[in-house]
């Protein structure tokens, strides 16, 4: 997975975004995940087929942070979502 990879949300994950934070439910494992405002911003931006590089650009604009640092953090975060099955590479 790199900044040119495309990801999509796993449609079997119930979630809600409220007041800028997100709650995701892993139904099979019975786990509940809390995403802070940046995590929720990333999750919200992921659609049917979203390029990881575009997510990083979006987060930089939204939270006024440097692109290089954001790209690494976004890639790490999306990889962890992928490992947990919340997103998949398309």
């Amino acid at each position: 997975m790199d900044k040119n990879s495309y990801v999509s949300k796993n449609k079997k994950i119930p979630y809600r975004i409220i007041e800028g934070e997100a709650v995701l439910v892993d139904v099979d494992r019975g786990e509940v995940i809390h995403l802070n405002s940046v995590g929720a911003g990333i999750w919200d931006f992921i659609g049917e087929k979203t390029k990881i590089g575009d997510i990083a650009n979006h987060i930089c604009e939204k939270f006024d942070i440097e692109n290089d640092a954001a790209a690494i953090d976004v890639l790490e975060f999306v990889s962890s979502l992928n490992e947990k099955g919340f997103v998949k590479i398309v």
Binding site: R16, I18, E21, A22, V23, V25, G30, V32, I33, H34
Partner: peptide, 12 residues
């Protein structure tokens, strides 16, 4: 707690 933080503590 925020609503999301509360939900994450209630659901488990």
């Amino acid at each position: 707690e925020s609503p999301v933080a509360a939900i994450c503590k209630i659901m488990p």
